[in-house]
Simulated scan of single mutants.
Amino acid sequence: MSERPVRVMRPMDPMLFDPLQFHTRYLLLLSKSCMWSWFYERTGISFPGLVRKHHQGLVAVECDVEYVRPFGLFDSDEFCVSVERVRARQGNSVLELFHEFSAQGQVFAKVRMLWRMLELDGDQALTGAPGVLRDSVLQRLEPCEIDPSRELRQVEVLRTQVEGEGEKIGEGHYPFTLYRHLCEVADQWSFLEVPGLASAGRERLIDALEQDPFKLRATLGRPLGQVLVKISCPFYLFEEGEVKTTAFSVHGRLVFVHRVINLTRMSTLAAVVIETFQD
């Protein structure tokens, strides 16, 4: 069988953009929404149905956002968000989805998302343990959508490279409390908000600069080129956190590495976000 893409047209909306580009959080939000369009149209399974009937859930563990080309609010009247392909990976324990955003026949952003399958305990908090796709779900996938190999994890590879080869040129700290506007239905943080927390850490670092020999302030006028996110620990309502941001110069290229720390949970590393800029 061939791939089974799903594409959704949407009108332009000023809330989707900052002055430079499409908000990362909305790329993730629309990717997630389109994912459930794909599931409902191609497998007949909605998110409530996955929970109620199949007793499974999923949690985002990594997402890669690539801004392919400049695209602004007035460049089109509408845009398309799609699921281009889906893969059940690593013994059917991880779902990998590939999304594209396009307008007037040209792709302007790509998103790849990794979702860890959960076996739910049945409580209202959607508590779950790592599991695999149940046969009742797996049988609705096509053979080409099942790949037993391990998926690519980009964040740790790039972080190791940046920290090993780069020159540290700035550091900052951004404390936050997880209030409900940053949460999803289970009163834990929404992965959609993690890139925003990282960007806030970068902007706080820049705003606090008394001197700027490396011209970090100039990045406020530069669009992002790539945002990589890895999530490794939950964050729950009212827990205290901190974004530790480090700016690196790597062979003349500026990279920001953000460590999101859950202070309430013994300063556990909850996420890593890496930001690079368009050339």
Rank of each mutant, 00 (worst) to 15 (best):
M117D: 00
Q106K: 14
F74D: 15
E100M: 15
R87W: 05
G91I: 13
V68N: 10
A109H: 01
F98H: 06
W115S: 10
S102L: 05
E78V: 07
E78P: 11
E119C: 03
V111Q: 08
R85C: 07
E84L: 02
L97Y: 02
V81M: 10
L95W: 01
E96R: 08
V107T: 13
R69E: 08
R112W: 08
D121M: 03
L97H: 03
F108Q: 03
W115Q: 02
F98W: 14
E96C: 05
F79L: 09
C80L: 14
A88M: 13
D121F: 02
C80S: 06
F79V: 14
E84Y: 09
L120C: 03
F74T: 15
R89P: 09
H99W: 10
N92W: 07
F79Y: 11
M113K: 15
W115L: 09
C80M: 04
R85M: 07
R69T: 11
Q106C: 12
L95D: 00
R116H: 13
G105H: 08
Q104R: 04
D77F: 05
E78H: 12
E119P: 01
F79E: 02
D121V: 04
H99G: 03
R69H: 06
D75C: 13
E78S: 14
V107P: 05
P70G: 01
S93Y: 06
L95N: 01
L73H: 12
A103D: 00
V83Q: 02
S82I: 08
N92V: 04
Q104I: 05
S82D: 07
Q106F: 14
S93L: 12
V86A: 14
V83Y: 01
V107G: 03
V68F: 12
P70V: 15
G122P: 12
Q106T: 04
V68L: 13
L97D: 00
D123C: 07
L95F: 15
A88T: 07
G122K: 11
D123L: 08
L118P: 00
M113S: 13
D77R: 15
V94D: 00
L114A: 10
L97S: 13
E78N: 10
V107H: 09
H99N: 10
L114R: 03
A103C: 13
F71I: 10
L97R: 09
E100N: 04
V111P: 07
A109P: 12
S82C: 08
V94T: 15
L73P: 07
P70L: 06
E100L: 06
D75L: 05
V94E: 00
L114V: 13
V68Y: 04
V111G: 07
V86K: 08
V81R: 00
R69I: 09
R116V: 11
S102G: 03
V111C: 12
R85D: 09
E119Q: 03
R116C: 10
R116D: 00
D75R: 14
D121N: 02
F101Y: 15
E119S: 04
C80F: 14
L73V: 15
G105Q: 10
V94Q: 01
D121W: 01
E84R: 06
L120G: 00
R87M: 04
